[in-house]
Simulated scan of single mutants.
Amino acid sequence: MELSVPSDADLLALAEQVAASVQQRRLMLVTAESCTGGWIAKALTDLPGSSAWFDTGVVTYSYGAKEALLGVNPRTLELTGAVSEETVLEMVSGALARFGAGVAVAVTGIAGPTGGTAEKPVGTVWIGWKRRGGYAFAKLFRFDGDREAVRRQTVAAALNGVLKVLTD
Rank of each mutant, 00 (worst) to 15 (best):
V30L: 09
V58I: 12
A32C: 12
D46F: 01
L69F: 14
F99S: 15
T87W: 01
D46S: 08
A65K: 08
I40W: 01
A43V: 00
R25E: 12
V83Q: 00
P74F: 00
S51D: 09
E85K: 11
V88F: 06
S84K: 06
G64K: 11
A41I: 02
S93V: 08
I40A: 03
G64I: 10
Q24H: 13
R25S: 11
A95L: 11
V92D: 04
P48M: 12
E67I: 09
L96M: 10
D46K: 06
S84D: 02
W39E: 10
E78Y: 09
G64A: 12
S34M: 07
Y63N: 15
E90I: 06
E78G: 06
A82R: 06
E86D: 12
T87S: 01
G49Q: 10
R25P: 12
Q24F: 13
A32E: 09
Y61F: 03
L89Y: 10
V92L: 10
L44P: 04
L69N: 14
N73I: 08
M28C: 13
T45M: 06
V30S: 07
L47G: 10
A82H: 05
N73F: 10
R26Q: 14
V83K: 01
M28P: 13
L69G: 13
V72P: 02
L27G: 06
L29G: 06
S93I: 09
G94L: 00
T31R: 05
M91G: 09
E67N: 11
C35H: 00
I40E: 00
R98G: 14
I40S: 02
T36D: 01
S93R: 12
E33W: 03
A32Y: 08
L69V: 13
A52Y: 13
C35P: 00
A65H: 10
V92P: 07
E78L: 09
A43M: 03
A52T: 14
S84R: 04
A20Q: 13
P74I: 00
M91S: 08
G38M: 01
E86C: 11
L70C: 05
L27I: 05
S84Y: 04
